[in-house]
Simulated assay, not measured.
Amino acid sequence: MRIDAHQHFWVFDPVRDSWIDDSMLVIRKDFLPKDLKPILKANNIDGCIAVQADQSETETNFLLQSAADNPFIKGVVGWVDLCNKNVDERLKHFAQNKLFKGVRHIVQAETEDFVLRNDFLNGISKLSKYNLVYDILVFPNQLENVIKMVAKFPEQQFVLDHIAKPKISEGLIANTNWKTNIKRLASYKNVSCKVSGMVTETQDFKWEEKDFHEFLNVTVEAFGVDRLLFGSDWPVCLLAGAYQDVLHIVEDFFNSFSIEEINKIMGANAVRIYNLNN
């Protein structure tokens, strides 16, 4: 089964979605399951994981309903306020839905030490009880504290989104700290990584496939083929390329790998890590 492990849906709201500014006109509109379904079919993708883009339980419910109505959406990584004292109650509520597979907070918008706050750590500590994955969305400067956080929870399954968003256009030499910390983070075997979100980490959204190769080499060396997952980051990826462009970057890079290894990266790992068969 081929799985897109990272994409989003939304009914565009100019106030709520103010992060979509005038430079992002191509995604200032609704993106719904009916829009993605033919794209997945055209690219031989069997299913996807819908990931939160708004920090509200309203959106979590919207994504879960979308998944219930559209069987190709195999799971949801939603949002629950991990810093709230009632976090256990809310996780228990959502975990009753088998389509609820994980939680994400937009940590990239927070301070560097946010992930070490006691209230946030308390929230993370509750996830494994409900067999929920935590998706890590951060910039490279936040990785050192992420590593400290991960070290506290050896039983928790973590997935790093978008290879932690290095500045692709500046090349690997300018991203030395990213390289060092990716390797340190990957030393924790309960952390996996989505090969996703790379095209939008380029200067003016201009890129060539070869721009990503050195970053992918580091990521593969760090995580190995058993802990990598393909994700399109659709529709955000449309800022810098079509769905098939993003897919081809990954498929072309891994073309020389074995069929078994490719199958893991393109779906089997996502099925296992997010428990998509349960």
Score class of each variant (00 low, 15 high):
residue 172 L to N: 08
residue 80 V to L: 00
residue 207 W to S: 03
residue 61 N to M: 10
residue 238 L to Y: 02
residue 118 N to R: 11
residue 275 N to W: 06
residue 191 V to Q: 01
residue 235 P to C: 08
residue 35 D to I: 13
residue 128 S to A: 14
residue 107 V to Y: 00
residue 244 Q to V: 11
residue 64 L to E: 10
residue 12 F to V: 06
residue 207 W to P: 00
residue 111 T to S: 15
residue 38 P to V: 05
residue 55 Q to K: 09
residue 36 L to D: 04
residue 226 D to T: 12
residue 112 E to R: 04
residue 133 V to S: 03
residue 43 N to L: 09
residue 41 K to P: 06
residue 127 L to T: 00
residue 123 G to A: 14
residue 163 I to G: 05
residue 178 W to S: 07
residue 79 W to Y: 14
residue 217 N to K: 14
residue 231 G to R: 01
residue 134 Y to H: 14
residue 269 N to E: 09
residue 125 S to T: 06
residue 90 R to C: 07
residue 128 S to T: 14
residue 9 F to Q: 00
residue 54 D to I: 12
residue 212 F to W: 04
residue 110 E to D: 12
residue 9 F to C: 05
residue 59 E to T: 09
residue 249 I to Y: 05
residue 224 G to V: 09
residue 43 N to A: 12
residue 181 N to R: 07
residue 96 Q to H: 13
residue 266 M to N: 08
residue 157 Q to S: 14
residue 121 L to P: 02
residue 76 V to G: 01
residue 24 M to A: 07
residue 277 N to L: 13
residue 265 I to T: 02
residue 47 G to K: 02
residue 8 H to W: 06
residue 256 S to T: 13
residue 64 L to N: 03
residue 256 S to F: 10
residue 28 R to Q: 15
residue 165 K to H: 11
residue 120 F to Y: 15
residue 272 R to Y: 11
residue 92 K to G: 12
residue 233 D to Q: 10
residue 139 F to N: 14
residue 223 F to L: 11
residue 156 Q to E: 10
residue 154 P to C: 11
residue 186 A to G: 12
residue 192 S to D: 10
residue 73 I to A: 02
residue 143 L to K: 01
residue 275 N to V: 11
residue 262 I to K: 15
residue 138 V to P: 01
residue 240 A to Y: 02
residue 201 E to C: 04
residue 174 A to G: 08
residue 258 S to C: 10
residue 276 L to P: 08
residue 2 R to Y: 11
residue 5 A to D: 03
residue 190 N to V: 10
residue 115 V to N: 03
residue 40 L to S: 04
residue 130 Y to I: 06
residue 138 V to M: 05
residue 277 N to S: 13
residue 75 G to H: 00
residue 255 N to K: 15
residue 60 T to Q: 04
residue 106 I to E: 03
residue 89 E to V: 13
residue 242 A to W: 11
residue 118 N to W: 04
residue 126 K to D: 05
residue 104 R to L: 06
residue 197 G to L: 02
residue 143 L to M: 15
residue 149 M to P: 05
residue 207 W to Q: 02
residue 97 N to G: 07
residue 112 E to W: 04
residue 197 G to F: 00
residue 241 G to I: 02
residue 36 L to M: 13
residue 181 N to M: 06
residue 8 H to L: 08
residue 245 D to K: 14
